[in-house]
């Protein structure tokens, strides 16, 4: 059992960490919201693995449903919903390269 738990945790850890990085570096905001929802999805499964079904259920309800609902509505109101948003693109590491942002 512990062997199985280890493999599940390993796959979930890889999934969560890579999508957390993706949520911060991907250019499109909607894709970032999708990646952040993947983080909380893996978190819910990990909570269930840790014998915390209450917390897993809360995380599932809040992280999968409500959080992406709030963020998606906010993106629509912020006007950042475009699939190919030209001027609103932002990257995590573009803070210092000011010319690229202003272009």
């Amino acid at each position: 059992m512990s062997e199985v738990e280890l493999w599940i945790a390993l796959i979930l850890g890889i999934m969560m960490l890579s999508s957390a990085v993706l949520a911060l570096v991907v250019k499109n905001h909607l894709a970032a919201v999708a990646a952040a929802s993947v983080v909380s999805l893996g978190l819910a499964l990990l909570f269930a693995l840790m014998r915390a079904p209450d917390v897993a259920m809360t995380e599932a309800a809040v992280g999968a449903g409500l959080s992406s609902l709030i963020l998606a509505l906010a993106l629509r109101r912020l006007g950042l919903w475009q699939i190919d948003s030209g001027s609103e693109n932002s990257n995590l590491l573009s803070a210092s390269s000011k010319g690229k942002d202003d272009a």
Binding site: P53, D54, A56, M57, T58, A61, G65, L66
Partner: peptide, 11 residues
């Protein structure tokens, strides 16, 4: 069972 006011309220 697991669950309660917060989760049900969200739903």
């Amino acid at each position: 069972t697991p669950g309660g006011g917060f989760q049900g309220g969200v739903i």
